[in-house]
Design a protein around this nucleic acid. Structure first.
Lengths: 145, 145
DNA sequence: AAATAAAAAGACAAAAAACTCTTTTATTAT
DNA sequence: ATAATAAAAGAGTTTTTTGTCTTTTTATTT
């Protein structure tokens, strides 16, 4: 497994795809999202339900319904998705899984690990959800396996 | 969950403790290791068996037996433990879990993510197993929760 | 050689993550 | 109003991770 959970990987890819696909104000169905990011459809549905409940993505039921992103969400950093799905542990937790570990009471690896963690945080805070629309639109990058 | 699996966290903590505790050539039993790193003893046994099979730590059965680290292993980078337990995916895998993603065919997040991954790799390659002996010996740092 | 101490191995058990299926609810178009 | 469409919700199942227990093997000490 990578740094993020599988659920989170699907979530990020889905949100990237929704951002790309609904830039013109359209909505996109789970079916289409799932097909375009290579994810199991019913499982993805759960993830998107959750992100919708948490206000990160929008959803409308019925014909012509589907998922979408409002302009505010497009400017949202990637970190918000990760926090919503995996929790903030990736950005704050100890590398050795120690509860006591903190700046004032660090574990042996704390200072080394902190640097990496902080860089990850900075990267995820500075990358926005809508940032890759053009590359995706031009077909340069893909979200499929 | 953090960047590494629980298994891996236990593994790193255990190896740090073995390094610290057997610096004088002694051996240390699972019981003692488990007590000092707050880990379930039988589960830790499995992890150490694996690390022993892979030649990262040494083990001797019978009275006065136990686990130990030879001088070569003390100079080994932390990355070897992580690779042995979690695989090298943490150091090489795509942030979005995409198989195709590589330097020549990057995913949208590839270049941003690569920097973080490379810093993690560098950190884990430059940190050695035996590096924290003194701090641990002085009781400044702990491996318990 | 016998007793003992400690790891190795194997077979289980529980919990969490990943994934599926079915039913319900809301919206829109006709 | 009704039919069609698409998400929401709920109730599973499977797989992986995490953790336990028992027996076997090996080395050491006496």
């Amino acid at each position: 497994m990578g740094i993020f959970s599988k659920t989170c990987e699907y979530g990020i890819r889905a949100v990237f795809f929704i951002a790309h696909r609904t830039a013109d104000g359209a909505r996109v169905s789970i079916k289409e999202i799932a097909a375009n990011i290579d994810s199991p459809e019913p499982f993805l549905a759960k993830i998107l339900q959750d992100l919708s409940r948490k206000g990160i993505i929008g959803s409308v039921k019925g014909p012509n319904g589907g998922f979408f992103l409002d302009p505010r969400s497009r400017k949202m950093p990637l970190a918000r998705i990760v926090e919503a799905i995996d929790g903030e542990g990736v950005f704050t937790g100890c590398g050795l899984g120690l509860e006591y570990c903190s700046e004032t009471n660090p574990c042996p690896l704390h200072h080394q690990f902190k640097k990496v963690r902080n860089q990850l945080t900075k990267m995820m805070e500075n990358t926005t959800i809508g940032q890759f629309n053009e590359e995706l639109h031009l077909g340069i990058k893909s979200l499929k396996k």
